[in-house]
Simulated assay, not measured.
Amino acid sequence: MEGQPEVEPRNEEQMDCERERAEDEWRSWQRGQVRNTLHLVSAVAQWILLLACLIYLGIDFLQPSTPQSDEVPWTLIRYSGKSTKGVAINLTAERGSIQIRNGSIMIPCDGLYLVSLTCSIYPEEDLLKLTLQKTQKSANSPLWIQTVRSSNNTVNLRDNRVNLTTVLFLFREDNLTLCTDSNADIRDLWLSLVLQSPPEEALCRS
């Protein structure tokens, strides 16, 4: 009978542990739901903005041709292939008036640009950084950096997705490049730039 009082505290400790474990699992599930919701919202917003951009480009394409100085600079880039550590990805334009040289996007006019980027990246190392950077007067300046984790689990393929939609003020001296800090396999990369403000001839490349 002397050992009987010890049973209840032990049972209470066991119940407390089970309750804490259940609460941890519930919080973990909630965090997963929030993360999935954020991924979904981000993807939907990305596709809406990309669709709006394509509609804008389609309307502009159907309009009567205008003088060269009045055309809105834009480019649409598609790429699938390998990336090499520290080397600019060899981008080529699918369509558009903005020139690309040696993988560098040559910004033709000062102004605000709508930038949209989507792709899937499969790094050879555990972590990878994808960097959108500008080169101006031999100096590199990162504009945006995305960290990607290596994942062989098909359930977590969303971790390999990259989505970017932003507006950047760029100058005509800027050259934009994409590069990774380790070797990787890049699939279904779509990159578009559209000048949002009317171009002024004095602020554009000759």
Rank of each mutant, 00 (worst) to 15 (best):
G3D: 08
Q4H: 05
E12I: 08
Q14R: 10
D16G: 11
D16M: 14
D16C: 08
C17T: 13
D24L: 14
S28I: 00
R31S: 09
Q33P: 00
Q33V: 07
V34N: 08
R35Y: 02
R35F: 02
R35L: 02
R35P: 00
N36F: 00
H39W: 07
L40H: 06
L40N: 03
L51G: 15
A52G: 14
I55K: 15
Y56D: 10
G58N: 13
G58L: 09
I59A: 12
I59S: 12
S65G: 05
T66K: 15
S69W: 08
D70W: 10
T75Q: 09
T75K: 04
Y79I: 02
S80G: 11
S80F: 05
T84Q: 09
G86R: 13
L91N: 14
L91Q: 14
R95F: 08
I98F: 05
Q99W: 04
N102L: 06
N102C: 06
I105N: 04
I105P: 03
M106I: 13
M106C: 12
I107D: 06
P108G: 05
V115D: 02
S116G: 12
L117A: 09
I121P: 00
L128G: 02
T131F: 05
L132Y: 11
L132G: 10
Q136T: 15
K137R: 15
S141P: 06
I145C: 05
R149D: 07
S150N: 03
V155S: 08
D159E: 13
N160T: 04
N163E: 10
N163V: 04
L164Q: 08
L164W: 05
T165G: 07
T165A: 10
F169Q: 06
N175T: 14
L176N: 13
L178K: 12
C179P: 00
C179G: 01
D181V: 01
D185K: 11
D185M: 10
D188G: 04
L191F: 04
L191V: 01
L191A: 01
V194C: 03
L195S: 00
S197G: 03
S197A: 07
P199D: 06
P199C: 04
E200L: 05
E201A: 09
E201Y: 02
